[in-house]
Amino acid sequence: MTATTTSSQPLTVLLVEDDDIDAMAVTRMFRKVPGEIPITVQRAVNGADGLAQLRQLVSDRAGPLMVLLDINMPLLNGHEFLSAVRADKALESTIVFILTTSIDPKDVENAYRSHVAGYLPKTANPKAGAKVGQLLREYADAVLFPMPRAIQ
Rank of each mutant, 00 (worst) to 15 (best):
M1D: 06
T2A: 07
T2I: 08
T2R: 11
A3H: 07
T4K: 01
T4D: 14
T5W: 04
T5M: 04
T6S: 13
T6L: 11
S8V: 11
Q9D: 13
P10C: 03
P10G: 00
L11E: 01
V13F: 07
V13Y: 04
L14C: 12
L15D: 00
V16P: 06
V16E: 09
V16I: 15
E17T: 01
D18Y: 10
D20R: 10
D20P: 09
I21R: 14
I21T: 15
D22P: 10
D22N: 15
A23N: 02
A23K: 07
M24H: 13
M24V: 12
V26G: 07
T27K: 11
M29W: 06
R31D: 13
K32W: 11
V33Q: 14
P34C: 02
P38H: 10
P38N: 09
P38G: 10
T40N: 12
R43K: 10
R43T: 11
R43F: 09
A44T: 07
A48L: 11
D49E: 13
D49A: 13
A52G: 09
Q53T: 08
L54M: 10
L54N: 07
R55C: 01
L57V: 08
L57F: 08
V58F: 11
V58T: 15
D60F: 02
D60V: 00
A62S: 15
L65N: 04
L65C: 07
M66P: 03
V67T: 08
V67R: 05
D70Q: 09
D70W: 08
M73E: 01
M73W: 09
L75R: 08
L76H: 01
L76T: 06
H79G: 01
E80W: 09
S83P: 01
V85F: 03
D88S: 03
A90H: 05
L91A: 02
E92M: 12
S93P: 05
S93N: 14
I95W: 03
V96I: 11
F97Y: 13
I98H: 03
S102C: 05
S102W: 10
S102T: 09
I103V: 14
D104K: 04
D104S: 07
K106D: 15
E109F: 05
N110L: 15
A111I: 00
Y112P: 09
R113T: 08
R113M: 02
S114I: 05
S114H: 15
H115M: 14
G118V: 12
Y119S: 03
L120S: 04
T123H: 07
T123F: 04
A124G: 15
N125V: 09
N125M: 05
P126D: 12
K127A: 11
K127C: 00
A128T: 14
A128P: 05
A130C: 09
V132H: 05
V132F: 02
V132R: 06
G133A: 05
Q134K: 15
L135H: 02
Y139N: 00
D141G: 03
V143D: 00
V143M: 01
L144Q: 13
L144D: 12
P146E: 10
M147Y: 10
M147H: 03
R149S: 10
Q152V: 12
Q152F: 11
